[in-house]
Design a protein around this nucleic acid. Sequence first.
DNA 1: CCCCGGGTCAACCATTTGGTTGATCCGCCG
DNA 2: CGGCGGATCAACCAAATGGTTGACCCGGGG
Lengths: 217, 217
Amino acid sequence: MNQIRILLVDDHPVVRAGLRAMLSDFEGISVAAEAADGDAALRELKRLQTLGDPVDVVLMDLQMGAGMDGVTATAQIRLLEAAPPVLILTTYDTDADILAAVEAGASGYMLKDAPPEQIRQAVLAAAAGQTALAPKIAALLMNRIANPAPALTSREIQLLELLATGMSNRAIAKKTFISEATVKTHLVHIYGKLGVDNRTAAISAATQRRIIRAPGQ
Amino acid sequence: MNQIRILLVDDHPVVRAGLRAMLSDFEGISVAAEAADGDAALRELKRLQTLGDPVDVVLMDLQMGAGMDGVTATAQIRLLEAAPPVLILTTYDTDADILAAVEAGASGYMLKDAPPEQIRQAVLAAAAGQTALAPKIAALLMNRIANPAPALTSREIQLLELLATGMSNRAIAKKTFISEATVKTHLVHIYGKLGVDNRTAAISAATQRRIIRAPGQ
DNA sequence: CCCCGGGTCAACCATTTGGTTGATCCGCCG
DNA sequence: CGGCGGATCAACCAAATGGTTGACCCGGGG
């Protein structure tokens, strides 16, 4: 059986070292390269491809201090020919993050506090073209289905995120290139789904239900 | 020269592995033990002390998913006899975090995205009883001193907390037994100090600066 | 003693938000 | 095809919020 070759993408040297140490303990898995942000990741991928030395799985963090963020990078990678599966490995478990990652074409979502064995399983699954979800994330999704989740659309979640940064309706409208009227319509829908009747309560509710991340990240 | 013996405290196995790998590459430094939260860290410290095998430096994360958080743990450790210096290694650089850590008795504050060499220097400094600040943190503190913080009154913080739960001015007024007019006056003061001009932005700013905790707790 | 800052309140007005109704467009599904 | 839901927008009105001015009380420090 061939080695599964991995590209690590994380802006923290400590985390990269940890993953490298952890993964190299596993048979059948090797770390082919590392990158500190999305741009570097794309460069590495292309470089290794032209060397005829392609990577099998990309392990990607979502929050990157500088440079291209994880979601954008994932989308870019999926546009490549012979794009390797991208496995998200991050700290945050909010709907917004998970949805954005899945929409960008991620083939798995793991949390950083996962035990090594789970990460290994996820890498193997991703390499085999399967979907890999952290038990926590899976449980979270099951819970969402069981308790009739408010089911916000991704557009609504997007507006909610802008809302949480303190932007006015007008500012949100400009930022998203829609009219103020539309923003208000969305907000009314959001209030209804969250069972609140004003924007601050919406932020509070959405944060509590982990639909979006807390304002201060 | 004796080895500097370290206790790693972090709830992420990945990060612990990374630090272990990184530190063991350095001469004169060895990882004596690991712990996933504050409680475990205290137990480890005591265990190693009674074995006559004390640790020289504690490397502590601030954000711990479950169990005792880093600040509390740091304070507890400093209460021990022959307490080792505690070096904070975390992701967040808000003044509230830094201040809390320093008040708790931390002897250094590093960020996880620091290059290995900086972390090594910090460990050496801590072991020698010196203070070690990441360049980023040092710059940040200088900046804070130059531009003094807004300094909200405790009453203002109290209203800010209610604000963050999504309450209207009227609701806040009732809850705090003051008039709506007074609530508005306070809010205007708060906006001024935070440099914003509406309630949602105030929540965002206050959360970011860790003046209040995020709506979702 | 007097001033200052924090907390309290009122009145007023402009702007923003919230809430409603109705309408168009588009893609998906049965 | 017909219908449904998501996204878009307009117009309108009521209510809440933001912003200002001025005022009062009280406790602590110069």
